[in-house]
Amino acid sequence: MKRFAALVTAVVAGTFASLASAATLDVVRERGVVNCGVGENFAGFFAPDSTGKWSGLDVDVCRALSAAIFGVPDKVKYLPATPATRFAQLQSGQVDLLSRSVTWTLARDAGLGLTFSGVTFFDGQGFMVRKGLAAKGLNGLDGATVCTQTGTTTELNLADYFRSHSMKYTPVVFETTDQVVAAYEAQRCDAYTTDKSTLAARLGKLKDPSAHVILPETISKAANGPVVRQGDGQWANIVRWTVNALIAAEELGVTSANVEQMKATSKDPETRRLLGVDGELGKLMGLDNAWAFNAIKSVGNYGEIYERNLGPKGAVAIPRDGLNRLWSKGGLLFSPSFQ
C-alpha cells in the first residue's frame, strides 16, 4: 500500500515538475514552433480566414517572435485561448505566450504567476448607445441597462465607474461578443460597453450603424500586450525586446522594404545595433544577432503592422490618432534603448 502511494505521488510530482523546469527557448527550439495562445476571433487583432490562416496585430507579434527565433515567421502554432481558460493554459505550459489583447493589471502580474512583456495596444473602455441617448453623454446613463461580456475587466470597470459617480445600472452579461451585440440591437440594453477598439470594430457591422454612436468618454485604461509565464527571465526578455524592436524600427525609419539596405548602409549606431551589424545584442538573449532584422523583414515595423491590420484597408479601421502613436508623435509607444 505504502509503495503504491509513493508511486502515485511520484508520478503526479513528475508530471508537475516536468512542466516547471526547462528553459522555454530550448523547448521551443526543440519543438520547432512557438505555441501562441490567441483568442477565438477578434478582427484586426487575431482572426483566422476561410483557409485557417491567422492574421491580426496580436498574430503579427507571434510571427515576429517566430522570425526572431527561427528566422522565418510561420513557425507558429495558434491555439485558441478563451478568457476563462487562457491563464491556466499559459501556466500549465500548453502555450508559450498569450498574444490576445490581455490587459495588464497588478493582480494578474503579481498574483497569477505571469509576466507581462510589453504593450502592443493601448485601449480604454467606452460605451455605445443609440443616438437619442447620446446627448447627455455618460451621465445620461444613470439607471440604464448595460450589456457586456463576461470574463473580462469590463464588468469591474463598469461597476467602479457607476459606483464612484453615484449612478445606478443593471448589467446583463453574456458569454460571447455576438450575443452581447444581438441583445443590444434588440434593445434589451440601453448601452453596450467594452474596449473602444471592439466597439469600433462592431459599430460598422450593426444593421444601421448611423443610428448608434460611441460616447467620447473613456472610463478605463487598458494596456494590452503579450504575456508569458513568470520565472523564465530569458523568455520574457525575448518577447519584450521583440515588441521593442518593432517599435524602435518605426522610430528609426526601418521598414520591411528597406531593412536590407539599412543593414548594409546605415551609419546610425542604434540602427546598426538593432539590426545586428554592431554588437552582440541577440546573443545576450540566446538568439542569433540577426533576430530583430529577421523580425522586421518578415512582419515590418509597428507602424506597418498597425496599418496592415487596423488601417483603412485592414480588417477593422481604428484611426491611429490617440495613444497608439510613437512617443515622438504624441503617443505612448516607446522602446527603451538598443544598447
Binding site: 493582480a107 497569477l112 463576461t150 453574456f174
Partner: peptide
C-alpha cells in the same frame, strides 16, 4: 448563454477571470 447570472456565470466565469484562481 442567455445572460442569466447563475452560479456558472457569476462564479465559474466572472469570478474565475477576475481572481484567476481557476
Amino acid at each position: 448563454a442567455v445572460g442569466f447570472p447563475d452560479l456558472m456565470q457569476v462564479f465559474g466565469k466572472t469570478t474565475l477571470n477576475q481572481t484567476g484562481q481557476a
